[in-house]
Design a protein around this nucleic acid. Structure first.
Length: 873
RNA sequence: GGGCGAUUAGCUCAGCGGUAGAGCGCCUCGUUUACACCGAGGAUGUCGGCGGUUCGAUCCCGUCAUCGCCCA
């Protein structure tokens, strides 16, 4: 006998262990079944499960479990990402606690230390994925720095280099002066900041005129190598080609005409600092201005500036420069100004555009096939609107800076000879061979952007560059499930790399889900303190409740605002299901081998198996279309609203009755429907359904997770549906009237019925149920002589004998109100049907529908009228 | 500045060219052979404003407002 409540916390770990031990998570490369593949977006090895993970992995697990039950050879490829900067920072923090740092340790020892950390702590996230119930093929778990994946990275790098798609270049890079590395545009967060706009007067050489330039970063003036004005700006026509003398520095720099200068902003003239601003860099290139680097790697002023400023931090220098300019009377004015300040997404430091040698990937070339593939529908985004986002990014893609000045990551397979000549090769030996024996080589100390290796994930995890059978079988993957925040970081890169190296898209479908936000719609973040920890919810309500909640809220194209009350509500749903099973068990509803749902004779059973079949079809359709919330909704309403609320209540009299044949059929049908419901719920709520399945089968029939997904050949019995719907409506109406008339719930009232043959038959068949659920003492087929409460149902009139407990004036008022409501409805319909335009132009179905409604309402009106007449109103 | 999305019950959200829905909350009643993490019943909506298309608009189009996100 089941306990009264399901205790998720006590059973989940054991159930999971059983699944994992059974081998049911594994793919079968030699199977004849069609494959179904999802490459799991590898969480950072430093990560711990947050709500976004919980959502994305729940949805992926639903798809995988569902397809697996459908008989597909499902591969959910798991793994973790080495997460260069993030991981290095974690270990560096540890070192700081030990009063040391990576430089004292040296590169080799430091990397050893990171690996150690990875061995000890790197499994946190995978352990938490297990708590979530995720069912990937753990035997195939990969790590982006595994030997195999590293070999793939080297091969890709070397190949792209030889194809000219990777190259070394001196350009401005987003420099993080705290982490001492360049980062890609995507890793930069622009934060709106209140600052100032300083207007500085630059003296024009050989005149007593000044030209005023406005800047948000006065300290960079030390690196100015020009002033730009708009070519059509009349104010400065005569100055173009002349020079200004840069204050504080004394450098003579040209005034150039360039459209970058906006005549409407400030004075219309801008200072140009080509070495420290991306726009200025371009202007400088056009006019051949000098690149004057004034910062060191800490963003402190270097020796290229006047002595007074050397070694100063950029922000301290700003103050001093402003003060010095004011002292010289060269500060025209200072205005408050809000601007976007670039920050490193990891360090939070203000990013400095800095001139360095970096490795770049020619993303523009690689992007073309990716764009074409989406245009041609080889890869489809769901919802489709995200394709615009993808195109927008891909069509304006910039060279991708792939080198990072870090230690943790894939070291770039490039070596330099004493003369600076570059040798790129997969191994040092090859590079040596290229250079010739005896040439001393030094390896490039940089590592690759983490996204470089994760871009290979869909094929590197399958064994590429070896032509493994897994690669052949599981690439391209079927669907990628991810959030829109990494369309650029990851989806785009996988598309580029996959198409280039595999000659095919990495996935057929990209399902983009929402971001999980808090109740107020705010992004969850540590600083806001609004984080809801999925593990806390799991402890409190069980994994299934959390999974069901996320599924029910995962409507396409919307952010998810998560309220804990929803989780609680769906925990209640788990309990409801549990107790329905408990009820079934108490009534000896046992699974019957070979039960054929279409063989049911009783209407109520024919009805419930039909309703189940319909729910099953709805769930399948919803999953096919990635409409997770609709699948959850269909199951919730079938299980609770149909099965528990009506079928269970309806069959109670049968199960406690004496008709053995009826009992047997009902028990078998109830058990079957419940078990099928568990099948349908399993992908969303794997734990409780597995526990119940074991309870019903005694563990003799294997695991639910490998059972066949429901699909039925039998047709829904429409007559049974009509009969039950009518009966349910009748009961609901009686209950409604009773409540309205304040008839005590316990009072059992005699009833009389005047009905057509069909309805008489229906009432007779479900007499016990109607009496029980509507609290009737007796039902007599006759029209009563006295005045009573009167309830109309289609084809029947039911009279309730409240025996003086009810004031007939009250009943008259009730009927009058009902009449009024019907008249309003009928009026609207009459108006519509009386509209010549409507009759001429509306679809025939729409007209027919209105006619039917008109007839319905008219009949109801007649009935209420007759009832009122009988009461003498 | 460019783009995307949202605006529906007190709250969180579905939905949709022709009867406006769910969960939570609220109110009333209730312990009848699963379940009070329950059951029965109920109240609450000019579907953001204004125009347009249409026989008909909460739904399609335009516009405005407000909010959110992404990109410059």
């Amino acid at each position: 006998m089941l306990d009264k409540n399901y205790k998720a916390a006590e059973v989940e770990a054991a159930i999971y262990a059983e699944w994992e031990k059974s081998g049911a998570f594994a793919c079968h490369p030699d199977s004849k079944a069609a494959s179904y593949t999802i490459a799991m977006p590898p969480p950072n090895v430093t990560g711990s499960l947050h709500m976004g993970h919980a959502l994305t992995f729940t949805l992926q697990d639903i798809l995988i479990r569902w397809r697996r039950m459908q008989g597909r050879d499902a591969l959910w490829q798991p793994g973790t990402d080495h997460a260069g900067i993030a991981t290095q920072m974690v270990v560096e923090r540890e070192l700081a606690l030990e009063q040391t740092d990576r430089h004292k340790l040296g590169r080799e020892k430091f990397i050893e230390r990171v690996w150690q950390w990875k061995e000890q702590s790197g499994s946190t996230i995978t352990r938490q994925l297990r708590a979530l119930g995720a069912s990937p093929d753990w035997s195939r778990e990969r790590f982006t720095m595994d030997e195999g994946l590293s070999a793939a990275v080297r091969k890709v790098f070397v190949t792209l280099y030889r194809e000219g798609l990777i190259y070394r270049d001196k350009r401005l890079v987003n420099w993080d002066p705290v982490l001492h590395t360049g980062i890609s545009d995507l890793e930069v967060e622009n934060i709106e900041t209140k600052g100032s706009l300083w207007h500085i007067r630059y003296p024009v050489e050989g005149t007593d005129r000044h030209i005023v330039v406005a800047t948000t970063r006065p300290e960079t003036m030390l690196g100015d190598s020009g002033v730009a004005v708009h070519p059509e700006d009349e104010r400065y026509q005569d100055l173009v080609g002349k020079f200004v003398i840069l204050p504080l520095v004394g450098r003579r720099i040209p005034i150039v005409a360039d459209e970058y200068a906006d005549p409407k902003t400030g004075s219309g003239a801008v200072k140009i600092t080509p070495a420290h601003d991306f726009n200025d860099f371009e202007v400088g290139k056009r006019h051949d201005l000098a690149l004057i680097n004034i910062f060191d790697r800490d963003a402190k002023l270097n020796d290229a500036v006047p002595e007074a400023y050397r070694g100063m931090d950029r922000f301290a220098a700003r103050k001093k420069i402003v003060a010095d300019l004011e002292a010289l009377g060269l500060m025209e004015k200072i205005e408050p100004h809000t601007l976007q300040v670039p920050h490193g997404d990891r360090s939070g430091a203000v990013i400095e555009p800095w001139l360095t040698d970096q490795w770049y990937c020619d993303a523009k070339t690689l992007a073309q096939p990716a764009i074409a593939s989406v245009e041609q529908g080889k890869t489809v985004f769901v919802p489709k609107t995200w394709e615009n986002t993808f195109f927008e990014w891909m069509r304006n893609i910039q060279p991708w800076c792939i080198s990072r000045q870090l230690w943790w990551g894939h070291q770039i397979p490039a070596w330099y000879g004493p003369d600076g000549k570059i040798y790129v090769a997969e191994t040092e030996a090859e590079a040596q061979a290229q250079a010739g024996a005896g040439v001393t080589l030094a390896r490039d100390s940089d590592v690759l952007d983490t996204w470089f290796s994760s871009g290979l994930w869909p094929f590197s995890t399958l064994g590429w560059p070896d032509e493994t059978k897994e690669l052949k079988r599981y690439y391209p993957t079927d669907v990628l499930v991810t959030g829109f925040d990494i369309i650029f970081f990851w989806v785009a890169r996988m598309m580029m790399m996959g198409l280039h190296f595999m000659r095919d898209v990495p996935f057929r479908t990209v399902y983009i889900h929402a971001l999980v936000r808090d109740e107020r719609g705010q992004k969850m973040s540590k600083s806001k303190g609004n984080i809801i920890d999925p593990l806390v919810l799991i402890d409190k309500y069980g994994t299934d409740a959390l999974r069901f909640t996320l599924t029910a809220l995962a409507a396409q194209g919307r952010d998810i605002k998560l309220a804990e009350s929803r989780v609680e509500g769906y925990r209640n749903f788990v309990t409801k299901l549990w107790n329905a099973s408990r009820y079934a068990e108490m009534n000896e509803c046992k699974l019957v081998a070979g039960f054929d749902p279409s063989s049911c004779k009783m209407t109520v059973n024919r009805w419930i198996v039909g309703a189940l079949a319909e729910a099953a079809a709805n769930v399948t359709d919803a999953l096919e279309a990635f409409k997770f919330n609709e699948a959850a909704d269909a199951l919730y309403h079938f299980a609770w609203g149909t099965f528990c609320d009506w079928y269970v209540e309806f069959t109670k009299p049968i199960l406690t009755g004496t008709d053995e044949a009826a009992k047997a059929e009902t028990r078998a049908a109830a058990a079957w429907v419940l078990a099928q419901t568990a099948h349908l719920l399993h992908p969303i709520m794997p734990f409780v359904t597995e526990v119940l399945w074991r309870e019903w089968t005694g563990g003799r029939d294997g695991l639910l997770m490998v059972k066949v997904w429901p699909r039925y050949a039998f047709a829904v019995d429409r007559d049974a549906v009509a009969e039950l719907d009518w009966t349910v409506t009748l009961i609901a109406k009686i209950r409604e009237v009773r409540a309205e008339m304040n008839i005590p719930g316990a009072a059992e009232l005699p009833a009389f019925v005047a009905a057509q043959a069909q309805q008489r038959e229906w009432i007779a068949r479900h007499l016990d149920q109607i009496k029980r659920l509507a609290r009737l003492k007796s039902v007599e087929f006759a029209t009563p002589a006295t005045k009573m409460i009167q309830i109309g149902a289609d084809g029947a009139e039911l009279f309730l004998d409240a025996a003086g407990a009810v004031d007939l004036d009250q009943e008259k008022a009730r009927l009058a109100k009902e009449k009024g409501a019907i008249e309003i409805e009928l009026g609207k319909i009459d108006q519509k049907l009386g509209n010549a335009q409507f009759m001429a132009k509306a679809k025939p179905e729409a007209i027919e529908e209105q006619r039917e409604r008109q007839a319905e309402k008219q009949a109801a009106l007649d009935r209420v009228g007759a009832a009122l007449a009988r009461l003498g109103a």
